[in-house]
Amino acid sequence: MRIIDLSQPIDASGWEPDPITHEVMTPAEGARHMSEEMREHFGLEFDPAELPGGELLSLDTLTLTSHTGTHVDAPSHYGSKSEYGVPRHIDQMPLDWFLRPAVVLDLTDAGVGVIGVDRIKAELDRIGYRPRPLDIVLLRTGADRHAGTPRYFTDFAGLDGPAVDHLLDLGVRVIGTDAWSLDAPFTHMIERYQRTSDRSALWPAHFAGRRREYCQIERLTRLGSLEQPFGFKVACFPVKIAGAGAGWTRAVALVEE
């Protein structure tokens, strides 16, 4: 079995609308920190110089949102209420949603804006595949080439409401994208709404989750490295953050050889 990494790193050097802070306590600093903590909390004296090289362990402290890097959105992210009941948080989602056969749809010709249901149907027809219940559908838009730059948050395509509903009608419960969002860019949606006064233009993919329970994987990468559009599984277990609307994931494709 080949394991193909589909996840972006959490990288404080890249551009983010909500900047990441990443502080590193070196092994030598960790030794001194441990000595101070032992003295303060337990009344124990320990000289860090007794340790090999005067070092203990490093420690990383990060400040970031649960939507930084490759992550899974939970139903509670889409709103506080839903038509089907109380939306579940990420720690409440069934794990069997996140290890499933998957299909990748090549939508790299979509440009910037909205991808409609006809385009989704056409790509499924082209590759000769009909998603089965609980299959994971991955959208390859090519947006990941801009990851780490401001363009990643403005130059991509997202699904409209009917496209999401079509996949949910087929029994799909996890939809992934290599773009920053499963919806179109903020600027595109808001400009379209201001031009048309059509509220369905505003976050239709996310708001579909207020009507029907499903999860999104956002900020995937390397979907083009999958040689076949289906015939593989994806593992994308979200980190179990109590009461959270999303959790980071190390998404991978599992390809039998």
Rank of each mutant, 00 (worst) to 15 (best):
D5V: 01
P131S: 11
A147Q: 10
T177L: 07
D73M: 09
E83I: 05
L62Y: 00
D160S: 05
Y129M: 12
Q92K: 13
Y129Q: 11
E227W: 01
R151H: 07
G176M: 09
A157H: 11
R119M: 09
G171H: 09
P75N: 05
A102Q: 11
S82T: 15
I10Y: 04
D178K: 10
L105T: 04
D125K: 12
I190R: 14
L134T: 09
T63F: 11
G171V: 08
S7L: 04
L202Q: 11
R132H: 06
T61I: 12
D5F: 02
G171R: 11
Y214R: 06
V112T: 14
R119T: 13
T141P: 05
V255C: 09
V104Y: 06
K121C: 01
A49Y: 03
I20V: 15
H22F: 08
L202T: 11
G79D: 00
F98L: 01
G30S: 06
I241P: 00
R119L: 07
W180F: 14
P52F: 04
T249I: 02
D109A: 14
P101S: 13
V172N: 09
R173P: 02
L95H: 10
Y152L: 10
F153H: 10
P75Y: 01
P17F: 07
L202N: 12
I20W: 06
L57Y: 15
A102N: 13
W97R: 08
G30F: 06
P238E: 05
K121D: 02
D91K: 06
G142L: 05
D109L: 08
P185I: 04
P94E: 01
P9F: 00
D198P: 04
S66G: 06
T154I: 09
L56Y: 15
P229A: 09
G53W: 11
H71T: 12
A12K: 14
Y78G: 05
H71W: 10
L167I: 07
E23C: 00
E227I: 01
R222Q: 12
G148D: 01
D165A: 14
G243R: 08
G209R: 08
A110V: 08
P9Y: 00
I20Q: 01
F42S: 08
L139Y: 10
R2D: 12
A201Q: 10
P101G: 07
P94F: 04
